[in-house]
Design a binder for these strands. Structure first.
Length: 225
DNA sequence: AAAAGTGTCAACCGCCGGTGC
DNA sequence: AGCACCGGCGGTTGACACTTT
């Protein structure tokens, strides 16, 4: 089979939607290439999957993003970067594609973020960071008016007072739970790392220090230049 | 009214990792 | 080990709608 040449592209018609939905109602989703074949749709399996996941699935929420959703996405993006599927997993009813589009067209503009400017890690100050206490981690003061009570779990230890990219850090959160991570640039961090990002991604000079996944948002410390 | 410019978002593309044979 | 297939991801494109000139 010469895949590619004979697959239809472009917007889906109402009739194609109906065929795909009927099939999935009857047989369930998955095995998208098989679905594409058996429905007679002249689409590739990937296209069928995408259409279902991003549009036809009943779990997909349509319509404008609420302010609450915007706020959540902004906070998640600070923590996770462009990991749209992870962000979408925490925004009920929204797909990664919706969130990515919304970010690129509305939110990044709203925040004044320019594309293509790389983050850089800057050095923290030399103060040791003491477990159970929020310290100013950077060379600059915490802006007046910052509500520290918004960050209830701030137990952070470091193995030295001054951090740089590559340094190992330990956090303690949620009772006895602790985790190890590495200070990284935001666009490079991996699943297990904590990270520090800064600069152009966050026009007001925000820094973030935080673990992700299991520990999630409670441990975000947002400090200005 | 029409052309040009801009914004939005559905869909595509290439790549990657997992799985089964 | 190597291959094919599949699902999933993030970046990008392009059609269409809307706004401005």
């Amino acid at each position: 089979m010469k895949a590619g040449n004979e697959h239809k592209k472009g917007l889906w018609t109402a009739e194609e939607d109906r065929i795909l939905m009927d099939y999935i109602r009857q047989h369930g989703k998955g095995k998208w290439n098989r679905i594409a074949r058996e429905t007679g749709l002249k689409r590739c399996g990937k296209s069928c999957r995408l259409r279902w996941m991003n549009y036809l699935s009943p779990s997909v929420k349509r319509g404008d993003f609420s302010e609450e959703e915007d706020d959540l996405i902004i906070r998640l993006h600070k923590l996770l970067g462009n990991r749209w599927s992870l962000i979408a997993g925490r925004v009920p009813g929204r797909t990664d594609n919706q969130i990515k589009n919304h970010w690129n067209t509305c939110l990044s503009k709203k925040l004044g973020i320019k594309k293509g400017i790389k983050s850089k890690v800057t050095r923290m100050n030399s103060q040791p960071i003491i477990s159970g206490e929020l310290k100013n981690l950077f060379d600059t003061p915490i802006p007046s008016g910052t509500n520290l009570s918004e960050f209830p779990n701030k137990n952070l230890c470091t193995n030295k007072g001054e951090l740089d990219e590559g340094d190992k850090v330990i956090t303690k959160e949620y009772g006895s739970q602790s985790a190890h991570g590495e200070v990284m640039m935001s666009e490079n961090y991996d699943e297990t790392s904590f990270w520090i990002s800064s600069s152009a991604d966050y026009p007001n000079g925000s820094y973030l220090v935080g673990p992700q996944e299991d520990h999630f948002l409670d441990f975000v410390c947002d400090i200005g230049f």
